[in-house]
Amino acid sequence: MRHVISLLIENEAGALSRVSGLFSARGYNIESLTVAPTEDSSMSRMTIVTSGSDEIIEQITKQLNKLVEVIKVVDISESAHIERELMLVKVRASGKDREEMMRMTAIFRAHIIDVTESSYVIELTGNQRKLDAFVGALEPELILETVRSGITGIGRGDRVLKL
């Protein structure tokens, strides 16, 4: 089963390698991992997408909690939550493709954020499925480059992950 684990961790050198080292040492999966400081810059928030049986997920959360610098761990996929990912796509855009790309951008509520005579950079956010759908809708030979941020997530409603 796929799980999305959010955690708060001290914003210190080496903290990320403690987390990634734990996953590799114990053979846990990481589908994606995102990290950045929170509004309180002494803390970082990480979102890890992983998969495994219930027992493995239980061990993952326990092992993460055991890391001295980890402040809080929550499996946000256990209840209602929102996931978002950012993608930038550089596409070939010349001749009739320019129109087509603008149309696709509008349909997916994406933005064109860089324009040259022969290319666009399109920015798109959404959940994984939306991003996949966008890439799927483009003609492969028009895609020059893609980059995705990995997933971040947050619980819906009153549920808050805070110190």
Binding site: A13, G14, S17, R18, G21, A25, V68, E69
Partner: peptide, 14 residues
């Protein structure tokens, strides 16, 4: 040293 010992200490510091 911090990298080498990371998996076999409870915690380490530089």
């Amino acid at each position: 040293t911090v990298g080498i010992t990371r998996p076999c200490v409870k915690h380490n510091f530089l």
